[in-house]
């Protein structure tokens, strides 16, 4: 088994679009019951065209995508910062690139990009042999 090389890129993976049922399902599963993520009227009142997707829902999309790319590798570290909100109904794309390749693991920069200029998630992930 060979690890990905520095500079190698994953395919682009579709993330979303998420609907209200998805938001409610994630809220129930995660325990994150902030009404902003499920209440369209509340989101509208503070200037969003639709409720923003839970940031952690975007981060949770990283592992399945990387597993689809390299099922022989295991995620051991995942960190990320949530930037531009992704709103319900908006599609996004997840992509990653190997920043550093070691003998046992690789470090990737992962981005989830929605329709706005800035990314919705900027993350780093470490994969190692499963």
């Amino acid at each position: 088994m060979s690890l990905p090389r520095q500079g190698e890129k994953t395919p682009a993976f579709a993330v979303g679009p998420f609907g209200p049922d998805d938001a409610r399902c994630y809220a129930a599963a995660s325990g994150d019951d902030n009404p902003l993520h499920v209440d369209a009227a509340l989101a509208s009142a503070i200037g969003f065209a639709a409720p923003p997707v839970h940031g952690m829902r975007l981060m949770a999309a990283v592992e399945p995508a990387l597993k689809q790319w390299r099922p022989d590798l295991r995620l051991t570290r995942l960190s990320g910062t949530f930037a531009e909100p992704l709103l319900l109904g908006e599609a996004a794309t997840l992509s990653a690139r190997v920043l550093k390749a070691g003998e046992r693991d690789v470090l990737l920069r992962v981005m989830v990009q929605g329709p706005r200029r800035g990314p919705s998630l900027v993350a780093e992930a470490v994969l190692e042999a499963a």
Binding site: Y26, A28, A29, S30, M56, A60, E63, K67, L78
Partner: peptide, 19 residues
């Protein structure tokens, strides 16, 4: 959590401990 996030792997999703 796996169902809500499309995770189909074995064990707990890496992001699950947010719970």
């Amino acid at each position: 959590y796996a169902r809500a996030t499309g995770y189909e792997g074995e064990g707990a999703p890496a992001a699950w401990p947010t719970v």
